[in-house]
């Protein structure tokens, strides 16, 4: 079983961090084979940002994503680049605050940025909210694995808010099931 997940959005939204956390959860806490890649350079800071994770039961050799089955999209530009091509059997999570288009595939609207601002006071938690949503929508890793990976990766003192962010994301998807 092999899943390819594409994260995309704007620089500064934590797109790459989200992919690294998910990769970490799968590689270290779920005993899966994982490769995480990302767009690199100036575009990773100011403009568009993209990252990908391949999670598999077998060793992953070829590192590039060819047919993502899960998309996390946090900007309209990213949607135009990646989301437009999403096949019907894919799954998409998008932030409706940034993305106006809707795909042909199954889709969850996760207003991660606005929820982060209103519930946690800072938009920086948007990517962790997205991860919570992704967890609820796919079950690709266990909650414990993801929580471990989040706590490994975030600054000290923000653990509580990050756990809340995960829960908010899970709830946003659960309400749409």
């Amino acid at each position: 079983m092999k899943t390819e997940i594409r994260f995309s959005g704007l620089g500064g939204q934590g797109i790459i961090t989200a992919a690294v956390i998910l990769g970490r959860a799968a590689a270290l806490y779920s005993k899966k084979h994982v490769v995480q890649t990302q767009s690199y350079g100036p575009e990773a800071r100011g403009g568009a940002s993209a990252s990908a994770v391949i999670i598999s039961d077998d060793p992953v050799y070829y590192p590039n994503v060819t047919n993502p089955s899960v998309y996390v999209i946090m900007s309209q530009e990213a949607y135009n680049k990646y989301g437009n091509n999403a096949p019907e059997d894919a799954l998409m999570l998008l932030d409706p605050g940034f993305v106006t288009s809707r795909p042909v595939c199954r889709c969850f609207e996760v207003p991660a940025t606005s929820e982060a601002k209103s519930q946690l006071g800072k938009t920086v938690f948007a990517n962790v909210i997205m991860l919570g949503a992704l967890l609820e929508a796919t079950g690709i890793v266990t909650y414990d694995a993801l929580e471990h990976a989040v706590l490994d990766s975030v600054p000290k003192g923000t653990e509580t808010n990050n756990k809340r962010a995960l829960a908010i994301g899970q709830e946003l998807v659960r309400s749409q099931l």
Partner: peptide
């Protein structure tokens, strides 16, 4: 090369 330098693995 850049591929190996920038990709993450266990």
């Amino acid at each position: 090369d850049e591929t190996i330098g920038h990709m993450r693995e266990k």
